[in-house]
């Protein structure tokens, strides 16, 4: 039911992307097309003139209701490489509580003829809400809403996996850490299932696994060693400090002892397994420095691919037709 609702909200009548809010309800063909388009954009960053004129004259507003310099920067770079004009608005939560409602903010930006909103918000469902109330000519890209979704992050992770592994169907993928609070994990799980990854595991103590997690289409492991056995891809998640205060975990130390990725544990995975992390890394909490900087780590590549993937999504939602 949700998938159907999302399809109607996110796609135009001709099946093309209008908004990019969640991967729920998006088909394998479209995801593959995003990855293919991103592939063609990776070349742009390596040119001396790092620009294509695809979105010349378009105005893209980065609406960040939650601070994130890194994510905002990659969206900004992606938009600029497509030759769009970019507005960066860091909207402190207190600004909206000063009286201007979220919808008033949107109406003002629409009046300035923005073509796209890139939205980050602390509340799950915020991007859906904005998409539902946006003017018909505006596209909305979800840059992270609460615990719900972060679809471009998941797509850049898929891009990274595809670059290294090619086919998804035989892959064993493990996602480790704070699944409960992670919008990245939710979107990765959806993406991997849509792309028909061979086997999907989540590994965490029970306090960090959401209710009815199996319904997401994953195998749940509490024992890291068992969970890593024979996997091709290890995705480590960021652990927020406040989890210790919420009585979810006793200490970072104990978490690292049980769920940290060490060189020794890495050897349980396949020898050619890759290690990923959405960043920023807490060294010595989620993973050992040797692993983070080691040969199997593709963490820095992820950042670079993020720009290409966001260019692909932006150009597909706003652009006139197929990518160059």
């Amino acid at each position: 039911m949700e998938a159907f609702g999302n399809t109607r909200l996110q796609l135009r009548d001709n099946g093309r992307l209008r908004h990019f809010l969640t991967l729920d309800g998006i088909g394998r063909e479209l995801l593959t097309e995003i990855l293919d388009n991103a592939e063609s954009f990776t070349g742009v960053s390596e040119r001396t003139v790092k620009k294509v004129p695809l979105l010349r004259g378009k105005v893209i507003a980065n609406l960040f209701f939650e601070n994130s310099t890194r994510t905002r920067t990659t969206f900004e770079l992606a938009a600029k490489r497509l030759s769009a004009d970019v507005l960066n608005l860091n909207i402190d939560a207190s600004a909206t509580s000063k009286g201007e409602s979220l919808l008033d903010t949107l109406r003002n930006l629409e009046a300035m003829h923005c073509d796209m909103f890139v939205v980050r918000h602390a509340s799950s469902g915020a991007a859906h809400f904005i998409a539902r109330h946006a003017a018909p000519h505006v596209s909305v890209i979800n840059a992270g809403d609460g615990r719900h979704a972060h679809p471009t992050q998941a797509m850049l992770d898929m891009f990274t996996i595809r670059r290294h592994k090619g086919d998804f169907s035989q892959l064993r993928v493990a996602i480790v850490g704070d699944i409960l609070h992670s919008r990245v994990a939710r979107s990765q799980i959806l993406a991997l299932n849509i792309l028909r990854a061979g086997e999907l595991r989540i590994i965490a103590p029970r306090t960090l696994i959401p209710a009815e997690a199996r319904n997401l289409g994953v195998h749940v492991y509490h024992d890291m060693d068992k969970g890593l056995n024979g996997v091709d891809v290890i995705i480590m998640l960021r652990l927020q400090r406040e989890r210790m205060r919420g009585a979810r975990l006793p200490s970072e130390h104990e978490f690292f002892q049980r769920y940290g990725l060490t060189e020794q544990r890495l050897r349980l995975a396949r020898p050619d397994a890759i290690v990923m992390h959405p960043g920023p890394i807490n060294r010595g909490v989620e993973l050992d420095s040797h692993v983070a900087d080691g040969a199997q780590s593709v963490i820095l590549q992820q950042v670079g691919f993020g720009i290409a993937v966001r260019m692909a999504v932006m150009s597909m939602a706003l652009g006139p037709g197929p990518a160059p």
Binding site: D24, G146, A213, N215
Partner: peptide, 10 residues
């Protein structure tokens, strides 16, 4: 439950 897990709602 299943729905709040999927939607990421507390």
């Amino acid at each position: 439950g299943a729905v709040s897990t999927r939607l990421g709602l507390p």
